[in-house]
Design a protein around this nucleic acid. Structure first.
Lengths: 357, 357
DNA sequence: CTGTTAGCGCCTTCAG
DNA sequence: CTGAAGGCGCTAACAG
């Protein structure tokens, strides 16, 4: 009766399972499992036979299945707003190095500043990762947090969420203040700012730091609304070059805008730093290649990411130790764009507190 | 007798499964599954009830389990030699955009130029991804290929493996030739080269292109052995600045070395491009920010990665269409470092065949 | 339209 | 030291 019932669809599958190894080695799958995970005690003869067969068959364990029984995937989900530019490149590098060190893989996803994309990314991470690293400067982290599956530990990166979530953050405010003070200390009196996207938490903090510390009166014309892009920096440069009276310093909310601004100022015939000094934020690798090299706030993003991973791994290990990680204090790096005298890496003048205070 | 046997360990687990939803909604798990995947036809009333309960319980499907039954993970593994610098950043960005578009996630891993790390990465991908994107310029791709699990389609990136594997490659040789010819055409006669790591396939091809097309006789002093790092570029710059007779052009095997070289030449008092012209390879974003902006071969890495993902997705869909993808021909971008006259993006002079010939 | 029942590939008690 | 058996959470026939 059941003669021509096809034995499921695996007719032409070349998938090799633990069962194949067991059959070929003439042992039970339990024994194969033991050997492969070197557990318990297994007779040396069995052990050798299994190993031999496994190699001959090119058997590689199915990590998906293994995760299911172990209830652990050894993967960490990383949800970023974007992947553009060196900031994220560095972030990823740091996260990867630290994750690998702890035996974890990285599952990367981008949300492009859309809450729904972030939520969908989170959902699709359930059951494929043991924990989540979440960077969401473009929207309220708290609202995202509510949608986290209950069994998915998460660490927020640089989002000014309430006390509820675990957060590893950069002290944007203090960094901005430090930069503006440096500019003022070197004699600049009319300091302008190129801000980041309005909805971005980091950008908001940097703007706040600028506002609270700039010399002179509030002047709306001195704040150009940017979006972290090079093009915004160029536009800002043109704007400020034409302004009368002209600012004598510009603090850009990130390095990429500073770079764009620098280029357009030069095109407009403005001398940097003689006429206008420029300061950035992040210290991406690009910064020291500009001419003049860019004074900026160094955040060591890779290190920042490493911290976050370590924090997450601790959380996942059930180390119910919700001790807050202190915000990371950016460090001022003085280069020629503010009137410093040196340009190459070896002579960067670095000041401020180190990462671990 | 079995009264006090603890019902497995899940005593305090807050994991919510499809079964919880089914019980709460008073239907079978099959129905829940149907609703959640909107399959078949389900009574509207059932449907609503399930949806309501799922939301109330904050149920999120376990993707791991789902992958196991579906025999499909909707993830792509990406194994890279490293994560340093804009080249990989761009690669990742392109891969991500294209993978997301096809409904896939990216599982990232690095091999650091070690064969064993690459092999271990491959093993740990089995059963968590549907296909592999593999970049292994530092060692023989064929040897890696032999260790691929049989059920894991793979696409090699830029590795000059035999015809066996699917490869998406950049035409390094042709690119190098084009650059050297450009240098020669603008009157340079003594053209030097900074090569990449000896074991690196791309580097080897670029060197070969240089050798086959440079004017004048072979001169070992004109080839400085680099390793793709900025520091190597600086060292090369010092070397060539001191050489007598000095070269009048330098072709660096990648942009980062070109950047380092440029800086050290300037420090040595050599004028670029008047005394020495410089050409790079890759056209990373950094290139146009240098001063003078760098003439280079643009490969559009992001696009390259997109192609590779599309190829892989096609392979995975069983489109047994092993039509080779033509090597991507880099495009010459002329900027001021070779004597061009313009510096900003809008006026880059681009020539050569476009990516799709 | 809905529930029951096999697995997916592996790990892990529990008995031999 | 080893094998049998029961899940992990979900999907997909197959009967009702």
């Amino acid at each position: 009766l059941l003669l021509n019932v096809p034995l499921r669809r695996r007719a032409v599958s070349n998938r090799i399972t633990i069962r194949d190894v067991a059959r070929e080695a003439d042992v039970s799958i339990a024994s194969v499992s033991r050997v492969l995970n070197n557990l318990d005690s297994v007779a040396e003869s069995t052990r050798e036979r299994v190993l031999e067969v496994a190699e001959r068959l090119r058997y590689v364990a199915h990590e998906g299945a293994r995760s299911l029984t172990r209830q652990q995937t050894f993967a960490i989900g990383l949800i970023l707003p974007d992947l553009h530019g060196e900031f994220f490149s560095e972030l990823l590098r740091g996260a990867d190095s630290s994750a690998r060190a702890a035996g974890y893989h990285l599952l990367v996803s981008t949300a492009h500043g859309q809450v729904d994309e972030a939520l969908s990314a989170i959902r699709s991470m359930r059951g494929r990762v043991d924990g989540l690293l979440l960077m969401s400067p473009d929207f309220d982290a708290a609202s995202v947090e509510r949608h986290l599956p209950a069994d998915l530990p998460a660490v927020f990166l640089n989002s000014h969420t309430g006390d509820a979530a675990t957060v590893v953050a950069i002290d944007d405010y203090a960094g901005a203040v430090a930069m503006v003070r440096h500019l003022a200390a070197s004699g600049r009196r009319r300091i302008a700012h190129i801000s980041g996207p309005a909805a971005n938490g980091d950008a908001a903090e940097r703007l706040r730091g600028y506002r609270d510390s700039r010399p002179g009166d509030d002047d709306p014309l001195l704040v150009y609304p940017g979006d972290f892009s090079e093009e915004a920096g160029r536009a800002a440069g043109r704007h400020f070059a034409a302004l009368d009276p002209r600012p004598d310093a510009i603090f850009a909310a990130n390095d990429l805008m500073a770079a764009g601004c620098l280029q357009s100022l030069v095109e407009c015939g403005v001398r940097v730093p003689q006429d206008i000094a420029i300061g950035g934020f992040d210290d991406v690798p690009l910064a020291r290649f500009l001419s003049p090299p860019l004074t900026t706030m160094r955040t060591d993003v890779a290190h920042f990411a490493r911290l976050a991973v370590e924090r997450l791994v601790a959380d996942m290990s059930g180390a119910a130790d919700p001790a807050k990680v202190d915000p990371i204090m950016p460090v001022l790096v003085v280069r020629h764009s503010c009137g410093g005298h040196h340009s190459n890496q070896a002579t960067d003048r670095v000041s401020g507190s180190p990462h671990h205070a």
